[in-house]
Amino acid sequence: MKICTTVQEMRQARARLGSVGFVPTMGFLHEGHLSLVRRAREENEAVVVSLFVNPIQFGSPDDLANYPRALERDIALLKEEGVACVFTPEAAGFYPEDFATQVDVGGVALELEGPSRPGHFAGVATVLVKFFNIVQPQRAYFGQKDAQQCAVVQRFVRDLNIPVEIVTMPTWREADGLAGSSRNSRLTEAERHRAPVLHQALCRARDLARAGERRRVVLEKAMREVLAQAGLTDIDYVTVVDPGTFQARDVVPDDALALLAVRLGAVRLIDNLPLG
């Protein structure tokens, strides 16, 4: 397995590979990441994984500093999975002092996480455009847990005619339903015990929708009630949206998506669930 730390090294390694499946990550890998790697390995001649905590997608210096890191462990896991190349650039080299370009996505990026985390999607889109240009993958793999991010990526890839297929895989969950996330490692024992209620709230909305409920206000109220019963009141948003636009409708479509963002202590968790 080749480990590349500069753009030049990555380009040279890429030239020796055939079709590439790319899995962009910020490291601190969990089983959800590895499921993406395995899918990429099945569908491509080689797999490239990035391990890069992207500084320009963080709104808070503290959030960036506290993001969990385990580079040596991650590299060992990826070697076991048969990854061909790991790209771990240094931020200073990836974004030199005179770096001045940003990819600003509209549409779906303006909803929910957009106003909640100003600049986040611009940072995500910018780093991914750079990665796609450097790695030149045939396919790139993402998890449905970050549903809005997946929609943003699909949008700029289409708008900018980037020749990469975006593959979205279902959210990987722990046995108790908690969506896999590197941020879960920052939860206290008590917070971790309460965290599965996010998935329970989403499932409540799904059950109602499958029973025929189409009023957004009813579905949102049901989710909030589940959260409140567990004592979770620090809520950023709880909503049901059209998955094509990420805008809310009073009467939700059959393929509606329920989403929520909730804080447990110092950790902000997001999750979503299709209601169909």
Rank of each mutant, 00 (worst) to 15 (best):
Y141N: 12
E111T: 15
Q148A: 01
Q136I: 00
P118L: 00
F94K: 08
F99Y: 15
V129S: 12
S116N: 08
R139V: 11
K145P: 14
Q102K: 03
G114E: 10
V135C: 01
G93C: 14
P137A: 02
H120S: 04
G119I: 05
N133Y: 07
Q136C: 02
V108S: 01
H120P: 05
F99D: 15
P137C: 05
G114V: 13
F99W: 10
P96S: 06
D98V: 07
R117I: 04
P115V: 07
C150W: 00
A147F: 04
F121V: 04
P115K: 05
E111K: 14
T101M: 00
N133K: 07
Q149P: 10
R139N: 04
S116A: 10
G107C: 11
I134Y: 08
I134V: 11
V129L: 14
Q144Y: 14
K145I: 10
V124L: 08
A140S: 15
Q149L: 14
Q144F: 14
E97A: 15
F132L: 05
G93I: 15
I134D: 02
F94N: 08
D104N: 13
T126Y: 06
F99C: 12
E113C: 01
L110D: 12
F99H: 12
S116T: 04
G107Y: 10
D104A: 13
C150I: 02
G106C: 11
A125L: 09
G93H: 12
V105F: 02
A109F: 13
E97C: 09
Q102S: 11
R139Y: 06
T126V: 02
I134L: 06
D98T: 13
Y141Q: 11
A140K: 14
A122E: 03
R139A: 13
V105A: 05
R117G: 03
Q102G: 04
V124Q: 07
R117Q: 03
Y141T: 10
Y95I: 08
F99N: 08
Y141R: 12
Q144L: 08
G114W: 09
D146N: 07
P115W: 11
Q102N: 06
K145L: 11
V105Q: 01
P96D: 10
A140H: 06
I134W: 08
A122Q: 02
Q138C: 08
G119T: 09
R117C: 03
K130P: 12
F94D: 08
V127Q: 09
V103L: 15
N133L: 06
E111C: 12
F99V: 07
V135Y: 04
A147R: 02
P137S: 02
G143A: 00
G123S: 03
G93Y: 09
E97L: 15
A140Y: 04
V124A: 10
A140G: 13
A109D: 10
R117E: 06
A147G: 00
Q136D: 01
E97I: 13
F94P: 00
D146F: 08
V152E: 15
Q144S: 07
V108E: 00
